[in-house]
Design a protein around this nucleic acid. Structure first.
Lengths: 222, 222
DNA sequence: TTAAGTATTATACATACGTACAATAGTACT
DNA sequence: AGTACTATTGTACGTATGTATAATACTTAA
């Protein structure tokens, strides 16, 4: 009957902030933006509602912080996969594909979080700015590897346009697979993405369109 | 000083319902799901808040109804573009690409509405069901045309997988263009999508992967 | 012109939200 | 052991939400 257990335990601000951020991510995924309230997040983190305002300027700030954190978390996972892969442009691109449709990226909750942020991008200037930064990094890296392949193989291609196409394909596959995983499997998504890289290597990206500039062609369809 | 103007004008339920639905779509696009309240929608439609509950079971019902309406509206626009195009599989596919990156589809507000629904898909069973129906129709039509091209040209390809890839590419391009139109133009999106069709016609979809099954290949990257 | 029907308004109500603030109590340091 | 610090709690407040309901008045038909 000596020492009763404490009502709560203290924690370092940095640690507590991350707990709240992770709780927010879980809540966004499960209950959506509507369902993500101060009280829900606090309960999810196992603390009292008042603590949120002690560590963050407000609910809005907490959500913006959660975006930054999630973006970094994804980047970290991808970076890890890339560092374990061959250092060639193709090796990196292949690893990127595999990582995009593997463990941490396939978490259905991740899409839930991401959709919320995409929505907010249209309304909220702060979120919009964060979005721009996250995506610029993402595309720049892909474009670099695609440019590397083009150089190796002396292909005449628009690396920027190819990166746009590849990004769109990956995002589209990821989006639709997460929205309804019963439609197609992650393995099929990987196959499709790898096939795109196969065609890129073979110099088939925008090959027909370029040929038609050199040799004006007849009507395409009819 | 004879007849004073009426405080309000009556309307047929069907007409009023559509006004409220359109107001909801505008609100979702501009203010997001959070900002779309009974009072905001009513003000947007120019009626009193109470009228919403008279024509719909509740706010939730109005939003679900708005999803159905938006889905049909998009389908109507695409269908119009397709009926004006050549009736060949390729003609239809080309028209689909052009329509996907033309006038009504490029409305930034449309993405705003769509993102909201994608978010809700994860939380709300009713919205999830509507989503399944909308996308099944969408994919089925594309798969039909892709299958048609394969048949015409005697290509050995998995039409289902090709339709998945094409859908993902279109959705990804559309999503990213609408999220930030400064990154690339609608014309570039069209070019990329048409190039995919070019490669499909040439029998290059999944061609490398199939060849490797017949002739086991060496390691892909290193 | 009158009357019936109902689309429409206006108000009221319970609930849940974000925020503010004072009280509490773990924790580290002397 | 005592003390200062502050992370943490608990409660209270104003506001905005969705819904319910009664009163109003436009519109059609007799």
């Amino acid at each position: 009957m000596a020492d009763k257990e404490p009502k709560f335990t203290r924690d370092l601000p940095e640690s507590r902030r991350r707990q709240l951020i992770e709780a927010t991510a879980r809540s966004l995924a499960r209950y959506g933006l509507d369902g993500t309230t101060v009280r829900v997040v606090a309960a999810e983190a196992g603390v009292s509602p008042g603590l949120v305002r002690h560590h963050f300027a407000g609910m809005h700030d907490l959500i913006a912080e959660t975006y930054r954190w999630t973006g970094k978390e994804v980047e970290k996972a991808l970076r890890a996969a890339l560092s374990a892969a061959p250092n060639s442009p193709e090796g990196q691109l292949r690893a990127f594909v595999d990582a995009s449709f593997s463990a941490p990226m396939l978490d259905p909750d991740l899409l839930g979080v991401w959709l919320t942020f995409w929505s907010l991008t249209r309304t909220d200037p702060e979120i919009h700015a964060i979005h721009g930064k996250v995506y610029a990094d993402y595309r720049r890296r892909l474009q670099m590897h695609i440019g590397g392949i083009a150089e190796e193989r002396r292909l005449d291609l628009d690396a920027r346009l190819a990166a746009l196409a590849f990004t769109a394909l990956l995002d589209g596959l990821w989006l639709e697979h997460c929205l309804d995983p019963t439609t197609f499997t992650a393995v099929e998504a990987r196959q499709i993405a790898h096939d795109w890289v196969d065609n890129l290597k073979a110099g088939r990206f925008m090959a027909t369109a370029r040929a038609e500039i050199v040799t004006p062609a007849q009507a395409k369809a009819g």
